[in-house]
Design a protein around this nucleic acid. Structure first.
Lengths: 106, 106
DNA sequence: ATGATAGGTGACTAAATGGTCACATGTCAA
DNA sequence: TTGACATGTGACCATTTAGTCACCTATCAT
């Protein structure tokens, strides 16, 4: 799971996820075109995303197709958001903190 | 928002968020005690979390109290999870990908 | 077969990051 | 008011990371 957070930390990699969300199954060359970077930089980023499980791949001839995998992001949601910020939970957290602050300021 | 992702990328900082979730409003010294690191390291991490808006602070005499702020994490949820992995959306995404893969394999 | 196309590897550099320390400020309590 | 306590700052070092490049392999079309 550490790899997922690290993968999401880079803006280029988030951009790649955005591109794959718009159109799934793109090749390296297609993804490279829209980024201000050489093919090698993009390749490294895709490798990081793949090792984190955020992107899965499939070969078609000499091409490599990249697919977005939303599962790890759902796991973040399950672990962090439901813990800290799911609608009901966050409302309770804020209420709790507000009350505590008011009590301390008395 | 970039700062939030970078802040979440470090395991020590996620640990600090966990500690604050367990007990909100802890001081630097209290947070330091459970971490295998000097006070200075913890201070740097807390600064990163504070600048990302994940932690808010309040001074009480010579102490500095740290509070968890779930809002930025909720924004991630709004931007990424609802986009990629909200229950209904992710189900659709997976279905869509499965269908596409089947079609390509024919 | 041969040239063009798509992708892969390892080495390298520059910059960012995590962690420590010497030293300094502000606050409490006796 | 003096000593102990809680936090802050700037410099510093080691490691990691983003990005590039020369070179290599595999596949397609003619």
């Amino acid at each position: 799971m550490d790899e997922v957070f690290k993968a999401l930390a880079d803006p280029t990699r988030r951009e790649l996820l955005d591109q794959l969300f718009e159109q799934d199954g793109q090749t390296l060359s297609a993804l490279e075109e829209r980024l201000p970077m050489t093919r090698f930089g993009v390749m490294k980023h895709l490798k990081v995303l793949e090792e984190a499980g955020l992107v899965t791949t499939r070969k078609r001839g000499r091409e490599k197709l990249h697919f977005l995998n939303p599962v790890p992001i759902r796991l973040i949601h399950d672990r962090w958001v439901s813990k800290y910020a799911a609608p009901w939970a966050s409302a309770l957290t804020e209420l709790k903190r507000d009350i505590e602050n008011e009590e301390k300021e008395r």
